[in-house]
Amino acid sequence: MSKESYELKAETRERVGKGSSRELRRNGLIPAVIYGDKQAPVSIAISTNEVTKRVQAGGFMTTIATIDVDGKKYQVLPKDYQRDPVRDFMVHVDFLRVSAKSLVTVEIPVHFINEDKSGIKKGGVLNIVRHTVEAQVPANDIPEFITVDLDGVNVGDSIHISNVKLPKNVAPVIADRDFTIATIVPPTVPVAEDAAEEEAASE
Rank of each mutant, 00 (worst) to 15 (best):
E193F: 00
T62A: 10
D157F: 03
F145A: 13
K73L: 01
V104Q: 11
G36L: 07
K53L: 10
Y35L: 03
R15D: 06
E199K: 07
K79Y: 00
L29F: 08
Q39V: 05
T66W: 01
L103T: 15
R97T: 10
E50Y: 07
N114M: 06
A135T: 12
T12V: 15
T105F: 12
I34C: 12
D149H: 13
A200C: 02
T183E: 03
K121L: 13
I146H: 08
N127P: 03
V33R: 06
A32E: 05
Q39W: 05
L77N: 10
V86L: 15
T48Q: 12
A10N: 08
A57Y: 03
G19E: 12
A32D: 06
F112I: 06
I34L: 07
A10Y: 13
G19M: 09
R177K: 14
S47R: 02
S5M: 15
A200Q: 08
L77Q: 01
V86W: 15
D116L: 06
D157A: 06
V133T: 11
K122A: 12
Y74E: 15
T66L: 04
P31G: 01
E203D: 12
S21A: 15
T132M: 04
V173L: 12
P187S: 05
G17L: 10
E193V: 13
P31T: 04
E14H: 13
D151R: 12
K73F: 10
E115A: 11
A57L: 04
A201L: 14
V155T: 15
R83F: 15
N163A: 08
I174P: 05
I30T: 15
G58I: 06
M61E: 04
V173A: 06
R15W: 02
Y81I: 07
H131K: 03
K53D: 12
D176G: 02
Q75P: 07
V69E: 09
F95V: 02
V42S: 04
E199W: 06
L166Y: 09
Q136N: 08
G17C: 09
